[in-house]
Amino acid sequence: MSTAPSAPLPKTRLRRPYLLDQLLRHKGGAFGLAIMALFILLALFGRMVAPYDPNANDYLNLLSAPSAQHWFGTDELGRDTLSRVIDGSRIAVAVAFLSVSIAMAIGVLIGVISGYFGGMVDSVLNRSQDVLFAFPTLLLAIILVAVLGPGLFNASLAIAIVYSPRFARIARASALSIKTSEYLDAARLAGVNTPTILVRHILPNVMPPVIVLAALSMSTAQLAYASLSFLGLGVSPPQADWGSMLSKGRDFITIAPWLVIWPTVALVMLMLAFNVLGDAIRDVLDPSHSSSKSTDTLT
């Protein structure tokens, strides 16, 4: 991501229809939503639109250049690159949502518990996160996949574990400040039990900054998965997957550059969509940030 490692915590309220409404009004937001929608549709219904079966070999058309028949060309087994790029979007979108959701769930759980209960629990959780931070992120993801085994879910889980401390930190900070708020004292006095307090009072107030972080993490997660997949740690072949397509395509880069061009284009487009959308969500949920940002970036 960009330079600012510690964005201020957003404080604004979150209402769903309002959020969507504001996003559509935000100029980056509408654009990001549109591309996102396109990718999600491709992910869901891609197999119907795709001109070919993404895994069908065509030995008469090995490594053929883009043509009317195969718009994006074919690979070394004669598989249609366009169909494979479309099919790969399924994996990319799924991993982004899956890993960020898991990271959010783990992080919020840990953050809220350590912020709310404090003391020993907090110290233990903090120290264990420090240990996770002692690994470079990609290295940690790689070794986790090695432990968990390959596959879509395991890769998502590995990425989620790597990114969960960020969610935990932000959730912990909010939980800490909410914990001492008067409405929490009031709830305790009312005799509300601890689980209810956590669910009813802490969680809803912790979520807005967490959602902003989640939105901003989608592109990072997608790219992390692409790297894993490129290194051969993603879903198993023959499933089409941008990272592994690039890895394979590298061998034919001089004779069939389309094999690396199109997956790269798709990857970068999805990344941009996630980024633009993430920024838009942050702007909408945390207006204070956008104003300070505009002085320093593109003017």
Binding site: R13, S181, E182, Y183, D185, A186, A187, L189, A190, G191, V192, N193, R200, H201, P204, N205
Partner: peptide
Amino acid sequence: FQMVFQNPSGSMNPRRTVGASVAEPLQAK
């Protein structure tokens, strides 16, 4: 016991309706 706090704006959960906050002690019972 019940308590009325020093700072009125901070003593109710900003995300819940006033009615829900007022009802809370009864609900807990």
